[in-house]
Write a protein that binds this DNA or RNA. Structure first.
Lengths: 153, 153
DNA sequence: TTTTAATTGCAAATCATTTGCAATTAATTG
DNA sequence: CAATTAATTGCAAATGATTTGCAATTAAAA
């Protein structure tokens, strides 16, 4: 379950400083480890596991436990979104300010390649499901799985 | 994350024997622990965790490791379907013969009550997603979360 | 009933994630 | 800029779910 992320895509420059601003706003310290973690998340568009983030950091830069703690905090602040691909490992993606980060992925079951999906579960159907069962504040967790072009060869 | 399953619903009688038949067909032994596990799954319509299954069994009836092994095997044979509610614990449901068991749930984030959902992600949209990305054999994992009627009070 | 391969119990091993705690440090204050 | 303080970190140990090695047991075939 891994694949080098050779995408040169980085998020808009502005974002990084806005991230530290957001942290400060919450009375949180901008520490070396945190800046480094945000930097890594910033350079990858795909969800990363804590272990992957740890591996990206210069050796000894930051403890794995610190990354776990940072992700918990960032998630609580809504700066990061947690994804579950069903393999028992949490993955995280930076969330653009003002957005809730809700979206889905298409994952290759052979090589774990991840594609971000624009589609979402139809809101009308979700509302109907909520109504029919008397539930409130209904959302969903949705991920697609299949075999990518490369792995079909 | 638990709730007594006070549903008297059991699956059609016929099923149980057909289950053992299926096992035999696969050159698998019908052992006490396995029969007991199938019996438990048979009496519950909601997904159960291995620990819950273990708790349902008469004390000392069967080791937890045996249940883990049995579920792995039953899943491979397609007799059981694994569900992931995102809380780090696997849940299983018996699959009706001839069916693939694909369906979804609506889970209360407060009391963990589970409702089985009839709706599914629209096939046309899924096909489009597969096509647009060149993926084959695409499926999805989908669960809904919200606050149930009881927990709204 | 014998033979044999599948299965089980039990303990130890894995893995991801969390946590206690003392040492370190960012940010504030004077 | 130095002192003060609460937040943060590293490290090791603790958790929890799940897996695995292995010797003893047992279902099913012969």
């Amino acid at each position: 379950m891994k694949k080098p992320c050779n995408c040169p895509h980085t998020h808009p420059k502005q974002e990084l400083s806005s991230l530290t601003t957001r942290l400060r706003r919450e009375a949180r310290k901008i520490t070396g480890p945190r800046a480094a973690i945000l930097e890594i998340l910033h350079q990858h568009r795909h969800p990363l596991t804590n272990k992957e983030i740890h591996a990206e950091l210069p050796k000894g830069e930051c403890d794995l436990a610190t990354i776990y703690r940072a992700m918990q905090m960032l998630e609580k602040l809504g700066m990061v979104k947690r994804f579950d691909f069903g393999d028992g490992v949490a993955r995280f993606e930076l969330v653009v300010e003002g957005d809730d980060g809700h979206h889905h992925h298409l994952i290759c079951t052979q090589c774990a390649q991840v594609v971000e999906i624009g589609e979402c579960f139809p809101a009308e159907i979700e509302h109907r499901i909520a109504r029919q069962n008397g539930f409130r504040a209904v959302t969903h967790r949705l991920e697609f799985f299949g075999v990518c072009p490369d792995c079909q060869k």
